[in-house]
Structure formats: structure tokens, C-alpha cells
């Protein structure tokens, strides 16, 4: 690898780069400057804030668990199995990464809503309705966040040296033993990075949630929904909640710096 040379920065380029950086830093500075620090504790300990926090944690962690359960096998299939239409399937299952979340929410309604393709059967057959429930929040969050896990784990599996697995197999290990004792431990960093990324995305989910699950304190009102609605009634509380989400996002980025962003 060649080390990048220390170069003189052309003035125009430096100016544009500075503008680019300022574009991201100014909004953060605005949030920090306008946050009513004195009321931070009151705002954070208000019942509706705690309720939104609790719901956000429960829903996003459940969404991450579901993503691991379904996403790791999906990643394994993408990385290891050749089959026609694999790229198309991968594109379809990672679409939510680029889809506007509101569109995702509408799609979920049309599939799992009371009049949806599957939702209709669920309601008629089992009396289960998903919109306006915490389960609906978990579904919306899983829908938008699982692709991050799938792609990260797939990349981990592809870069894995398969000789370790072959060695284990020649030594008599069964398929499940190889998976549990060799493959998964070897891709642990990707698993961790994928899980944290998808958890952070789930925690910040707004559009699909409000569209599919609605908004009700304690049941479907997660932190981002509370931030949005509080902006109208109690802006100060909304600023504080925004800072909490900002701090979590920052912690995730810093924590994953080496694994995901690549250390300098």
C-alpha cells in the first residue's frame, strides 16, 4: 500500500471541502447551542420521554434480534449458494436501504395491514392485526434495518478463508459444528458490526413506523416520533431527545470506526 503523500491543498478545493464539512457540523452545533441544558433532566425524566425511550429500546433490540435470526441465514445463502436470480433477490431484499421509509410503511400496510395481502388472512384466521401495535413497530424497524446486517455479514462471509471450514470438515466436524464453532466465530466482527449498524438504523426509524404503526405513547410512539411531535408542543424537550439520539449515533460510529469505516 502506498502512503498518501502530504500535499498542498489547492485553495478552491480546500474552500469547497470546508463548506462541505461545515454543512454537517453547523446543524449539530445548532442543536448543541439551542438545547436547554438546564431543563435536560426534567425533559429526560418526563413520563412520556421515558416511555418513548423504553419503547425505542425494546423495539429496536427486538428488531435486531429478528434481523440476526433471519438475516444471517439470508447472508449465508447469498454468500455460499449459487442460484439463478440471486442478484435480483439480493437487490429486492436490500431495497429498503434506498427506499423512502414512508414508501416502506405503505408497502407494509398493503401486505400486513387489515386489508393487506397477508394481513387479511391473519385477521380473518387468527384475529391478529399488526398496524397500531408494538409488533408493527418491530416489523417496520426490521424492514428498514435488516438489509444493513445482511450486507455486512455477507461481506464477512465472502472474505472468510474457507480453508478453515474445510479443515474442520476433514477432521470430522458436522455442518452445524462447523457453522457454530468455526464460521460464526470467524465472522464475529462482521456479525457485531452488522448488528450494531442495523440496531442504530432501527433506533432512528421514523417514516415506516408512523405510516405502518401509527403513533401512540407507550405502544407505538418511539423516540423519533416523540421528537417530531414534541417539536410542536414542547420544542425544548424535542431538542433534548434529539441530542440523546445524536449521542447514540455518534457512539455507534466511533465504536465501529475500525471495523466499518476503516481506521486511518
Amino acid at each position: 500500500m502506498t502512503r498518501p503523500r502530504r500535499e498542498r491543498v489547492p485553495a478552491a478545493l480546500g474552500l469547497l471541502a470546508g463548506l462541505g464539512a461545515a454543512f454537517f457540523i453547523l446543524p449539530l452545533a445548532g442543536l448543541l447551542a439551542r438545547a436547554p441544558w438546564g431543563d435536560a433532566l426534567t425533559a429526560l425524566s418526563a413520563p412520556e420521554t421515558l416511555e418513548a425511550l423504553r419503547l425505542s429500546l425494546v423495539a429496536s433490540l427486538t428488531a435486531t434480534a429478528v434481523s440476526l435470526l433471519l438475516g444471517v441465514p439470508l447472508a449465508w445463502v447469498y454468500a455460499r449458494v449459487e442460484f439463478p436470480g440471486r442478484n435480483l433477490l439480493r437487490a429486492l431484499t436490500t431495497l429498503p436501504m434506498v427506499l423512502p421509509p414512508v414508501v416502506g410503511g405503505i408497502a407494509l400496510l398493503l401486505a400486513f395491514g387489515r386489508r393487506g395481502l397477508l394481513g387479511m388472512l391473519l385477521e380473518r384466521g387468527f384475529g391478529i392485526t399488526l398496524p397500531f401495535t408494538t409488533a408493527g413497530v418491530v416489523m417496520a424497524e426490521t424492514f428498514v434495518s435488516m438489509p444493513f446486517l445482511v450486507l455486512t455479514v455477507e461481506a464477512g462471509l465472502r472474505s472468510l478463508d474457507s480453508r478453515y471450514e474445510e479443515a474442520a470438515r476433514t477432521l470430522g466436524a458436522g455442518r452445524w459444528t462447523v457453522l457454530g464453532r468455526v464460521t460464526l466465530p470467524l465472522i464475529a466482527p462482521s456479525l457485531f458490526a452488522g448488528a450494531v449498524l442495523s440496531w442504530a438504523r432501527a433506533l432512528g426509524e421514523f417514516g415506516a413506523t408512523i405510516t405502518f404503526a401509527g403513533n401512540f405513547p407507550g405502544r407505538t410512539q418511539t423516540m423519533p416520533l416523540a421528537v417530531y411531535l414534541l417539536l410542536e408542543s414542547r420544542p425544548e424537550a424535542s431538542f433534548i431527545l434529539s441530542l440523546v439520539l445524536l449521542a447514540v449515533s455518534l457512539a455507534v460510529l466511533v465504536g465501529l470506526r475500525d471495523r466499518w469505516l476503516g481506521s486511518p
Partner: peptide, 10 residues
């Protein structure tokens, strides 16, 4: 009447 709403839309 005191109905219990399931969602508080924006």
C-alpha cells in the same frame, strides 16, 4: 363518550 384511540396521527 370516552373512546380509546389506537393512534394519534400527525
Amino acid at each position: 363518550v370516552k373512546p380509546a384511540p389506537r393512534s394519534l396521527e400527525a
